[in-house]
Amino acid sequence: MNLKIKDERLMNELSKLAQQSGFDGFCFSIRPIESLNPLPDIKRLSKLFRNYAARQKHLVYWDDRSKAIREDYYRTVSKIDVESHNNSLGFNLWLGKSHSTKNAERIAYFKEKHGLTCVVNFRVELAGIEGWHGVFNLFSSEEPSKVQSLLSSNESHLAWQLQLYSSHLCQLYMPQLNPIANFECLSEKSFNIIELMADDYNNAQIASTLHLSERGVSYHIDRLKQVFNVRSRTALISKIYRFGLLSR
Rank of each mutant, 00 (worst) to 15 (best):
Q56K: 06
F139S: 03
S29I: 02
K239P: 01
A181S: 11
G90M: 06
K67N: 13
K79F: 08
D63R: 06
H157T: 08
H99S: 10
L48H: 03
S238W: 02
E34W: 12
K111F: 15
S29H: 01
L89N: 09
N182P: 03
T209M: 07
V147T: 07
V77W: 01
E214H: 06
H220Y: 14
K189A: 05
Q161L: 13
V77D: 01
V124H: 15
F23P: 00
E214F: 03
A18Y: 00
S166I: 08
E130Y: 10
V77H: 03
E83H: 12
L196N: 08
N12L: 15
K111E: 05
S167C: 08
D24M: 07
F191K: 14
G134H: 08
F49G: 00
P40R: 01
I107M: 13
F136N: 02
G90Q: 07
N137V: 02
S29A: 13
E105G: 06
A108Y: 02
N202V: 07
Y165K: 13
I42Y: 07
G96T: 04
T234V: 13
K113C: 04
A198S: 14
Y74P: 02
S145Y: 09
F23I: 07
Q20T: 04
V217S: 04
N2P: 14
T117F: 02
K113N: 08
L210S: 11
G128S: 07
K79L: 09
I30Q: 00
G131P: 00
R248W: 02
R44L: 10
S145K: 14
P32R: 12
S84I: 10
I80D: 00
Q56E: 09
V120L: 11
S149K: 15
C118R: 01
L39K: 12
I30C: 12
F183K: 01
D222Y: 15
F23V: 04
K239R: 14
M1Y: 05
S46W: 02
K79Q: 10
